[in-house]
């Protein structure tokens, strides 16, 4: 199924929203860069990056009812999580494994985003597990509507579920089973595949025999869209359509955002063993932040002085987040025993 965009939803975005989107991408990048530096300095044990994916994520976030619609993210979704309300301090606390760290109390590795308040679902590390679960969240939304437990137009309630993953993860059976439910039940569901061409070292052509992940949408009876994942407004446009489809009972959408990871898979990876420096340099020219920045500068929405302010503000926020996290205590060893079983009293 192809999507013909007649009118670009992004054309209706006002300047302050465009700048907010730019800020979200920039903050994520600067925070991400700091995490790499902290790892190289030996201050943190692990970082897994969302660099290069900021446009795909921010374009998506801004099309959602943020904090209300369910998001089941994956480990590259830093910019998405920030756009939904995770703070730089939250992220730094997880990098440093601090006490009361927001996502898991210091149990999970960093970048396993979670916040019940913000309807960000806790993820694991085995890939694609979140896809059929997110279909389950979408099923619950539809169930409540069908059973008259909620008003379908109530915007204070979640009206769709989004799952994110990489293209390599679509090789998993779990992805297939989740997509199949979404198709069979016409669920209010969006699957965002951030296709960065590599599953750690394994390139796309060793992962799948078709050109696009979104080509598979037909097989599930859902809409499929390929979008330039480095163009934040193009992503926003297709996501607005996908969101409308979900909200209006039109079913699920498989969105494939084509992008690139300009850094190694994680702090433990060395990408020089599987791809050329020339390839990486070529993709860096298509950097989504630089691209959006240039377009905003050209349109006179952004100027050098404002850009300088954003950069200073980003540095200050990242500095403060790091300082706060470094000053925070570590969890007590005995906290290992906490939250194994939910107590019965919690049951309403």
């Amino acid at each position: 199924m192809t999507n013909h965009i007649v009118e670009r939803a992004s054309a209706r975005l006002n300047e302050s929203t465009l700048l907010e989107m730019f800020w979200g991408m920039l903050l994520s990048r600067r925070l991400d860069e700091r995490a790499w530096a902290l790892h190289r300095q030996g201050k943190i044990h692990f970082h897994i990056s969302g660099m290069g994916h900021e446009a795909a994520q921010v374009g998506t976030a801004f099309a959602l009812n943020r904090g209300v619609d369910y998001i089941h993210p994956y480990y590259r979704d830093l910019a998405l999580s920030l756009a939904v309300g995770i703070t730089p301090t939250d992220f730094m606390m997880s990098l440093f494994g601090r006490k009361d760290e927001y996502s898991s109390g210091g149990r999970q590795m960093p970048s396993h985003f979670s916040s019940k308040d913000k309807h960000i679902i806790s993820g694991s590390s085995p890939v694609a597990t979140q896809v059929p679960q997110a279909a389950g969240l979408a099923f619950a939304i539809q169930y409540r509507q069908k059973c008259g437990l909620v008003d379908p137009n109530d915007t204070s309630q979640p009206r769709l579920a989004l799952a994110c993953l990489g293209e390599g993860s679509t090789s998993q059976g779990e992805w297939h089973e989740g997509m199949n439910w979404a198709g069979v039940h016409k669920l209010p569901f969006i699957c965002l595949v951030q296709n960065n061409i590599y599953a750690i070292s394994v390139p796309l052509e060793s992962q799948m025999a078709v050109a696009n992940v979104a080509d598979r949408a037909t097989a599930y009876g859902v809409a499929g869209v390929v979008v330039d994942g480095n163009d934040v407004l193009a992503v926003y446009d297709v996501m607005v359509q996908a969101v409308q489809r979900a909200y209006s009972g039109g079913g699920a959408t498989l969105v494939e955002a084509k992008t690139y990871r300009p850094v190694p898979h994680s702090s433990d990876d060395d990408d020089r063993s599987y791809r050329s420096r020339e390839e990486v340099a070529e993709w860096k020219k298509k950097d989504p932040i630089m691209r959006f920045q240039n377009s905003l500068l050209e349109d006179g929405i952004l100027n050098d002085s404002l850009l300088h302010d954003y950069e200073s503000r980003a540095r200050a926020e990242v500095d403060k987040a790091q300082a706060d996290a470094e000053a925070a205590p570590l969890p007590d060893a005995e906290e290992v025993f906490g939250s194994v079983y939910a107590p019965l009293e919690e049951q309403p």
């Binding site: 059929p132 997110a134 969240l137 619950a140 169930y143 579920a161 199949n180």
Partner: peptide
């Protein structure tokens, strides 16, 4: 359900997270 056990459990997990 479709004939796929993994999905039966995963859909259940998602629905349970959404407080069903």
């Amino acid at each position: 359900s479709p004939l796929a056990e993994l999905s039966i459990i995963a859909i259940g997990i998602g629905a349970a997270l959404a407080d069903l």
